[in-house]
Design a protein around this nucleic acid. Sequence first.
RNA 1: GGCCCCGUAGCUCAGUGGAUAGAGCAACAGCCUUCUAAGCUGUGGGUCGAACGUUCGAGUCGUUCCGGGGUCACCA
Length: 595
Amino acid sequence: MTITNLIQQAVIKSLEGLYHQSFSEKDFQINDTRPEFEGDYTIVLFSLVKKLKLSPDKLAKEIGNKLTEHHNNFISSYNVIKAFLNLTINDDYLQSFLFENYKNENYGTQEITHLKIMVEYSSPNTNKPLHLGHLRNNFLGWSVAEILKTNGNKVYKSSIVNDRGIHICKSMIAWQHFANGATPESTHTKGDHFVGDYYVRFNNEYKNEVEKLKSKGVEKDKAEKEAPIMKKTQEMLLDWERGKPDVMELWNKMNSWVYKGFDETYKRIGVDFDKTFYESDTYILGKEFVQKGLEDGSFYKKEDGSVWIDLSEQGLDEKLLLRSDGTSVYITQDIGLVKQKFEQYHLDESIYVIGDEQIYHMKVLKEICKKLGMPFADKILHLSYGMVELTTGKMKSREGTVVDADDLIDEMIETAKHHTKELGKVKDFTNEELNDLYETLGLGAMKFYLLKVDPKKRMVFNPEESIDFHGFTGPFVQYTYARIQSILRKVEEQPATGNQQPATVSLLPLERTLIIFLEKYNNAVIQAAQELNPSVIANYVFHLAKTFNSFYAEHSVANAENDEKKKLRVCISVMTSIVIKNGLHLLGIQVPERM
RNA sequence: GGCCCCGUAGCUCAGUGGAUAGAGCAACAGCCUUCUAAGCUGUGGGUCGAACGUUCGAGUCGUUCCGGGGUCACCA
């Protein structure tokens, strides 16, 4: 039971006792008291003034009296300004909360819900390496999955690999034409980058061919269709769908290169999956639904053989489901996979972490599922996130302005190394310990940077800012953790404080503030899950670290005024470090013992 | 053009309909014989894109307009 809930119940009870009507938590609001006023929580009672026909001041005082009378176990005093009723929480209550919870490593974990949720994220194409945008997706998906787990749900992390389709054939064709049998091994190139280079190569060649045709007087549209390399690619896609052996062999070979590269990156950034789906397996499932939809009249066939659905009644357009040559498109495959997911995993919800440029697509998918009478259509949830832009503008792979994920990770770790060496605090570390630390800090900075903003908003990636390790950053929070560990090491050297519950003392402002804020961690965990928003956690954990650092500068733990204070502050420090650790874990960020 | 998202300090972002709108960065001024200065304390910086409206109360809700972005493919 959180303090907010306690107050809520106490206020309802007081209201009912005073005015003999029934009330609910919607009749008033509970806010944090603004720092310029005395108190910890503020109950806003304006909405009741009219209903009860009392002056704001009188109403607030009556409730205040009732609360301090009947709930003095946790409310010690109150003051009133208009209809703002400011409550001060009992020092004893705060301390017993602290002593009961400070050692709890699972603090923040919520009760089991028995809900099964799948979070699909990452979902890469096997024709190019990961870039900055993918990192936002990966961190977001992983973090949301962990947040849902902590909230008591059974969570499956999944990924659907885009391993088939025209874009994959493009890199295959380019490799056939230009590689002369080169491999990642022979060129010492990471597999995903190797294949990505041929994708780029294809696009260059294609552009040249189109230009050539245009200079011969062919119209643009026609040139784009007639370019020889494109025609070959389309033939290859048909061959692939027919399962032509040499095409399959090349496809398998190139995919295995890419997967090796991806695995390396995933491992490095600490991202994992419980289940990986492959479109090459699932696109067939979609075709079955096309047949079903045609039979029951949800879909229709045009003269050229292509299959469509009309969603204009739903305010959407007509949408293609099967090309005239019988091959399937993106959405066809999604339909098949949705059903499989829900049935195999008995899901209560399926969350798709996909960029906001696909909001329309996901709406269409949902509508199609509804039209096909799938019972789970409403349990499909699109967690859309905004594009990551650069200070110089948008990232465009064709213009070579993408920030490559592997390069960026290297750079962040290098920066961590640079800062660490400059500060020279961990000179006694072994090389292995140092490298671990650089990774912890570099990745921590990067993940925090990408997760601290609201996912649904577009964000600007500023290289200089992202590399900053001061202020609202991962390393700042990690630093606070390391500092606390340093205190705890120092305290351990001194005589043991004993296990018995310390006597309660009167709390100083910063001590109160910290305990009250620690108590609110549960609220943050719940809110983050409701909103599917890791930035709630990032903001919480930063605020906690900030508050602790102020406390640290003001008061000594190891050399506290007396034994009771020392015990109290050790408990506050231990609990702060656990909450930081648990909070950062939800963001996929590790904590260093020293830095 | 239709539909969707966004506009808060110089920059990047917080801000469940409540009190005098907050952080970080950048700028400036202080603080290391005492638990890690990747820190702390302070100063300056705002017509919350604009106008109406709803409300006891609007950065937050509604309408219109302005500005930015996305999307509406036999691409994924």
